[in-house]
């Protein structure tokens, strides 16, 4: 590695205070632990993202491909000021979210990948990354867009986001913003979680990020389409 060249290519890093893990009781009674991960676990996370690359349903393929690249870029020091939160149930990875800080005032929400569906896991993870940006990093607003109409409708309807001019860095789609005011107005209704996470739950989550098999991931995303009955 040419250190001098690498110094140009590797972005500097802004200090980010850690995101304290939390636990959410799901409709199933299951305990969803949401916690921040460091870049060393990216190779493990990519195993869960890879099966989504060929799933057209709900734009999982585009979200998966972009998330794969963002995580890999973070792992290999080619993305600036990215953070990543994961959701685990009994150690099993059920969702990933990531965001990039654009400035001390603005974060750019990147992606939300829910592997387990129908339990608001995507919504809980999305809320967690907004919580991190607004409450812990002190941003004034987070820029948001979506590839999937389902995600777009959910964020728009649930948070009543404000439209912004310009472009989100994920492309030319109209950007919207979650402001501090909007966040706090919706917090009681949408942002769940209890802290601290009980030690036994935290120990299981940190011991190993368990990745479901490719078949299981596709079953969770595609539902009955992959079952035998037609």
């Amino acid at each position: 590695m040419d250190i001098e060249v690498e110094a140009y290519l590797r972005p500097p890093e802004m200090y980010m205070p850690p995101y304290p893990a939390k636990v959410i009781t799901l409709a199933t009674g299951g305990k969803l632990v949401i916690r921040q991960v460091t870049r060393d676990v990216v190779p493990t996370l990519l195993q869960a993202v890879k099966p989504t690359l060929e799933v057209e349903r709900d734009y999982y393929d585009i979200v998966g491909a972009r998330l794969y690249a963002e995580l890999l870029g973070w792992y290999r020091y080619r993305v600036r000021d990215e953070f990543c939160l994961v959701g685990q149930i009994e150690g099993l990875l059920v969702g990933i979210v990531n965001t990039r800080s654009f400035s001390p005032e603005v974060d750019i929400s990147l992606h939300t990948l829910a592997i387990e569906r129908g339990l608001r896991i995507g919504a809980h993870l999305f809320a967690a990354k907004m919580e991190y940006s607004i409450e812990y990093l002190g941003r004034k607003e987070v820029l948001i867009t979506a590839e999937s109409p389902i995600g777009f409708r959910r964020w728009m309807i649930e948070y009543g986001l404000e439209k912004r001019d310009g472009q989100h860095e994920l492309g030319g789609a109209t950007p919207f913003a979650l402001t501090r005011d909007l966040y706090f107005r919706n917090k009681d209704r949408l942002v769940a979680g209890e802290r601290p996470v009980p030690a036994d739950l935290m120990e299981v989550a940190e011991r190993e990020i368990i990745i479901a098999s490719e078949d299981d991931i596709l079953e969770k995303i595609l539902g009955a389409k992959r079952r035998l009955v037609q």
Binding site: I24, T25, L26, A27, T28, G29, G30, G118, L119, R120, H124, R189, L190, V191, A192, G193, E194, A224, R227, L228, V229
Partner: peptide, 26 residues
Amino acid sequence: NPYAHIRMKITMEGVLTHPQAHINSP
């Protein structure tokens, strides 16, 4: 039922009695 749309167990705690159940079941 393999023909069912919703194939997920739910609990009283998760959708009603937990202090934050209103977020799971608004």
